[in-house]
Design a protein around this nucleic acid. Structure first.
Length: 277
DNA sequence: CACGAGACCTGTTCGC
DNA sequence: TGCGAACAGGTCTCGT
């Protein structure tokens, strides 16, 4: 469930632009611990130990749904899967339940990757592009122009929902923000991408940027017991609101399955395209 | 090449 | 009440 706004929020916190946690940037790594082998996306484990110890964390940033630690020599990349989280704590006592991977930092801290459902992964890479090269454009980056977006969407025949969730098409959207963006743009999730007008494409890009920005402002979405601290869940207009009135027109929100994903939309605000289902 | 289905996971919820 | 089945979802792999 961590999508772009949740990963951005975690990156900001780790960069110590809040003040709940001790600073991580600038610290030296003095150890590394693995508690679930399959969390490693790159092998072997021995290379992690020999390579990481002694390096400093120079920078922390986000690309798509990935969080990147830029070290003095190489990079550690995290993908949080659907239940992953990163936190900083004093390095004392045994790891908690579901902790999968630890970076021990001088003098007495640890950066903890916790991931109950084990979908998260961590990479060690000389160049981040080894991991990130297939990602589509950053939706919030203004170098993605409405004209570009329309051109790209116009040559795809896929339905909008599976297309927007495809990280190769655009990076950072997951199930929650895709449903929210399609509602804000008044587009049905099953609409074939190439059939929308240039103006509709521009509205859609605007909508994507609006919901992502609001998500970041509200520190992400906290659903179920996964991911804490956000409050965007209190401002969702369609996601997980099946049967509740649409905030725009009061029509009950409907839920369908698209590309095996639960998909929420307003049948009145987001009229069905000509060739549905 | 483009796309869809199945697998990977486990805590929670639902149904009998 | 209790237990198992269904569900949720991001991405990789495989098949068409």
């Amino acid at each position: 469930m961590p999508e772009l706004p949740e990963v951005e929020t975690i990156a900001l916190a780790l960069r110590e632009e809040g003040h709940d946690t001790p600073p991580v940037v600038g610290r030296k790594i003095q150890g590394v611990r693995l508690l679930w082998k399959r969390t490693l996306a790159t092998q072997p484990w021995e290379k992690w130990q020999s390579s990481l110890i002694g390096q400093s964390i120079n920078h922390i940033y986000r690309r798509g749904k990935y969080l990147i630690l830029q070290l003095s020599q190489n990079n550690v990349l995290f993908h949080l899967g659907m239940s992953g989280d990163l936190r900083v704590e004093i390095d004392s006592g045994e790891p908690a339940k579901h902790d999968r991977f630890l970076l021990l930092l001088e003098p007495d801290l640890r950066l903890v990757f916790n991931d109950p459902r084990k979908f998260g992964r961590v990479w060690l890479a000389t160049d981040p592009l080894e991991v990130l090269s297939t990602l589509g454009p950053e939706p919030l980056n203004t170098s993605l122009t409405p004209q570009d977006f329309y051109r790209h969407i116009h040559q795809r025949k896929r339905q909008l929902k599976p297309l927007l969730i495809d990280q190769k098409f655009i990076a950072g959207l997951g199930n929650i923000y895709t449903d929210e963006a399609l509602h804000a743009a008044r587009l049905h999730p099953l609409t074939p991408a190439h059939t929308i007008s240039q103006q509709q494409a521009e509205y859609l890009l605007d909508a994507i940027r609006q919901v992502l920005s609001e998500g970041i402002q509200r520190h992400g979405t906290s659903i179920d017991w996964v991911y804490q601290g956000g409050e965007f869940q209190n401002h969702l207009r369609v996601y997980q609101r099946t049967g509740e009135p649409c905030p725009t027109c009061s029509t009950p929100i409907e839920r369908i399955i698209v590309a095996q994903r639960g998909t929420h939309y307003c049948p009145s605000c987001q009229p069905c395209p000509n060739n549905p289902v």
